[in-house]
């Protein structure tokens, strides 16, 4: 009994700071923002309750709300689909026994270490239609490069490409997943005469599905919150083509001082992310394979 009490006390001492931090800096702001979403609040003055007006404003009066929803869905879905495909492909390459494998792995991970501001500024130059290296190379191949960040058609693909460039963390996770797949399964498949595509389809991919699930969920959450790149590179332009949900929220919160409305936007974003995460989890029984099940 005494030992239990003592353990409990020590547990409280060790966990307490974290719990306190969580309550103060996560739980309180989380629920406070729900209250603020029903108020007119500008940080300085006291919040005034206005019922559902912020939500009404969102759906019927904010002329860029639906634009930002469309842009964010485009970005999230494109990035998750293409990002996952590219990441698995690169992880598979990095899993092969090739010369200087460690160096290649390092190279793909380096973008993760580059601060977003720095990488965004670099990409502004890389993608510049008139002086950027991408269009220079395309021109050398006889192609006319698009106006990446200045085109309503190309700005979102440009940001997706940039996001995939920085997805070294997902590649490392996929790589770890690939290395967890038992070698004897590959050997057995080869003995049975399976080719590389068959091996990939029937062994690698199924056994990688838990990792894919993880990266898809994390990727969805990340991409729905996309903000920094478009804030730095395009400010949501041209013609609001890269105005993501997070950017619209930021603008209303910190430039337009409508914290109440921004809180309402944040809560809707939370619900959207929650909904899609649940949808993905609901579908896992159909496509995620756990070896120990």
């Amino acid at each position: 009994m005494n030992t239990n009490r003592s353990n409990l006390m020590w547990a409280g001492i060790f966990v307490g700071p974290w719990v306190l931090g969580f309550l103060l800096f996560t739980a309180y702001p989380f629920f406070a923002s729900l209250w603020y979403s029903f108020t007119n609040y500008n940080i300085v003055r006291d919040a005034e309750f206005i019922g559902l007006y912020n939500y009404e404003f969102m759906f019927f009066k904010d002329i860029v709300f639906w634009v930002s929803i469309g842009n964010t869905f485009y970005f999230a879905i494109t990035l998750v689909i293409f990002g996952t495909i590219v990441d698995i492909f690169l992880a598979a390459l990095l899993n092969r026994k090739i010369v200087a494998r460690a160096t290649y792995r390092l190279i793909y991970f380096i973008p993760v270490l580059v601060p977003t501001v720095a990488s965004s500024l670099i990409w502004i130059w890389v993608l510049n239609p008139q002086r950027g290296i991408v269009n220079y190379l395309l021109e050398a191949m006889g192609l006319v490069g698009p106006n990446w960040l200045g085109s309503t058609t190309w700005v979102k693909p440009a940001l997706v490409i940039m996001a995939i460039w920085g997805s070294g963390r997902a590649i490392i996770i996929f790589l770890a997943g690939l290395q967890e797949i038992p070698r004897h399964l590959y050997e057995a498949a080869r003995i049975d005469g399976a080719g590389p595509i068959t091996v990939f389809r029937h062994i690698t991919l199924p056994l990688l599905t838990p990792v894919i699930l993880f990266n898809v969920v994390v990727g969805l959450i990340f991409s729905f919150q996309a903000f920094a790149e478009s804030y730095i590179m395009t400010q949501g332009g041209p013609a609001n083509a890269s105005l993501f949900y997070g950017l619209n929220l930021y603008f209303h919160a910190f430039e337009n001082l409508r914290m109440g409305y921004a809180s309402a936007l944040a809560w809707l974003l939370f619900m959207i992310i929650m909904f899609f995460t649940l949808v993905v989890f609901r579908g896992t029984r159909r496509w995620v394979y756990y070896e120990n099940e």
């Binding site: 502004i124 510049n128 239609p129 008139q130 002086r131 106006n147 200045g150 085109s151 041209p238």
Partner: peptide, 16 residues
């Protein structure tokens, strides 16, 4: 117009 926007994205905010 797209060329104008391209020009703006290159030089519009003091770039280059």
């Amino acid at each position: 117009g797209s060329e104008l926007v391209a020009w703006k994205s290159t030089y519009g905010t003091g770039g280059f």
